[in-house]
């Protein structure tokens, strides 16, 4: 009920009859209506829509971000540039492409822990991390990351000492933050690729440390 087109004076009741194709849900129909209208106007290409969906469902995940972090851990020059001009540094790895967004990288240290949120909606560095998990887009995280970041971190299993300063960064459409986690101790012998495997999505949002989890949680 709440999802029919607002301000629309007509009402269409779609009781399914027998024998015909099942009528999709209201939001699915609204999406089809938009897609067909926008296609007719030449504003979107259905093949490009399908390709975008397939890329985000199957290809683009947090691995690109993990490669950026691992490179920064092994290459001080790259790290320096990453902290000064993240977008430019990341472009040298070829990761941003058409969905280039202005990225800012914030570095965790023994004294500073950074946490990223979008209080407004869901701004997030898609090109580096894929699409955000559901909890990132939900009100509890959006609200609590700002007013109780230590409580949020504890809920994610990350207890920080009082001596550690927690900085919260609010992503926007123009400015998207990525956390550069601390390189875990005892990893001096690892290759760049092995290091990248220690970097989870959650570590780059700032709700975990690198190496603390083997795989990013959904």
């Amino acid at each position: 009920m709440p999802y029919s087109l607002s301000n629309h004076p007509h009402h269409h009741d779609h009781q399914p009859a027998h024998g015909h194709s099942d009528v999709p849900s209201d939001p699915a129909l609204r999406t089809k209506a938009l897609e067909s209208l926008l296609t007719e106007k030449g504003l979107v290409d259905p093949a490009a829509i399908d390709a975008w969906v397939e890329a985000y469902e199957k290809k683009i995940g947090p691995r690109r971000g993990a490669q950026v972090v691992a490179r920064a851990w092994v290459d001080p020059n790259f790290k320096g540039r990453l902290l000064r001009d993240a977008t430019g540094a990341i472009e040298t790895l070829g990761f941003l492409g058409r969905e280039a967004q202005h990225i800012v990288v914030v570095e965790n240290t023994p004294a500073i822990h950074n946490l990223v949120v979008c209080t407004l909606c869901s701004c997030y560095p898609w090109g580096l991390l894929g699409l955000p998990p559901r909890w990132y887009k939900a009100a509890p995280y959006r609200a609590r990351a700002v007013i109780d970041p230590r409580g949020v971190l504890a809920e994610f299993g990350l207890a920080l000492g009082d001596e550690v300063e927690v900085r919260v960064w609010d992503s926007t459409a123009e400015l998207r933050y990525l956390v550069l986690p601390e390189r875990p101790g005892g990893t001096e012998h690892l290759s760049e690729a092995e290091l990248a495997a220690l970097v989870t999505r959650d570590a780059m949002i700032g709700v975990a440390k690198a190496g603390a989890l083997r795989e990013g949680r959904a």
């Binding site: 087109l5 629309h8 269409h12 779609h14 999709p24 609204r30 209506a33 067909s36 926008l38 106007k41």
Partner: peptide, 15 residues
Amino acid sequence: IASADLLAAKKAAWV
């Protein structure tokens, strides 16, 4: 780009 009426008409066409 499109009016509410046009969106609703297109949706009805899909139904």
